[in-house]
Design a protein around this nucleic acid. Sequence first.
DNA 1: GCTCATGGTTACCTCTTTGTACGTACTTCC
DNA 2: GGAAGTACGTACAAAGAGGTAACCATGAGC
Lengths: 114, 114
Amino acid sequence: MSRKRDDDSNTNCAVEASLGVIGGRWKGVVLYWLLKGTHRFGELRKRLPNCSQRMLTLQLRELEEDGLVKRTVYAQVPPRVEYELTAFGRSLEPVLVGLRDWGEKYKRRLQRTG
Amino acid sequence: MSRKRDDDSNTNCAVEASLGVIGGRWKGVVLYWLLKGTHRFGELRKRLPNCSQRMLTLQLRELEEDGLVKRTVYAQVPPRVEYELTAFGRSLEPVLVGLRDWGEKYKRRLQRTG
DNA sequence: GCTCATGGTTACCTCTTTGTACGTACTTCC
DNA sequence: GGAAGTACGTACAAAGAGGTAACCATGAGC
């Protein structure tokens, strides 16, 4: 999605506003895993093998900016950084579940129709 | 969203699969209006003043390919083309409503926090 | 004093997406 | 005969997204 993140036109339509927040290339999956609990950076990397380190960092930063994710840095060496959903982030759960369920339907449909 | 439309990695995660379908720059809004009923091409253009004609065409074509939208051409001059949701497209309604409602929440939050 | 692990950052380059601008077909209206 | 209306298509350029690879800091263990 080439959707400039501070574009006014996003916020005109509430659907677009939501998609602007969760529509990033890897955000859906990240949120999906964070719904299941707190994860360290490295753990998320293992969950998203196709996502480069740079992209994961960027997506997490944006989610943090949007108030969906809380980032906690522990003063240790080697560093330890944990990511978890905020209350606001958890309010996305029904939406994500809806997206997941519909996605399953879509995938089944793809298989039928080739 | 730079999300290649026939990328396998989309279909691994059902959430990503959904976002791959509705995540296009204007698809959310288009679907939102089509939920309210059949629209001609020109009518949709008026609903999406920030979307160029070319983009609207492209987004509608992709939605058609994905089986969400039905395109009907009437053999008239000047041409008349109508777009409406398929049954499968209408099955997205609860998801879109969820996205819209969450989007409203997000927008209110933005106003509060500046 | 060298290496490893963790969670980054940065520069550079490529590919995709989107925008702008213009062309098209056909008919009706003036 | 020239403009307007409708729903496109196409070419070119700009912007944005994403990948790769290299670098950084630091303390523990050898």
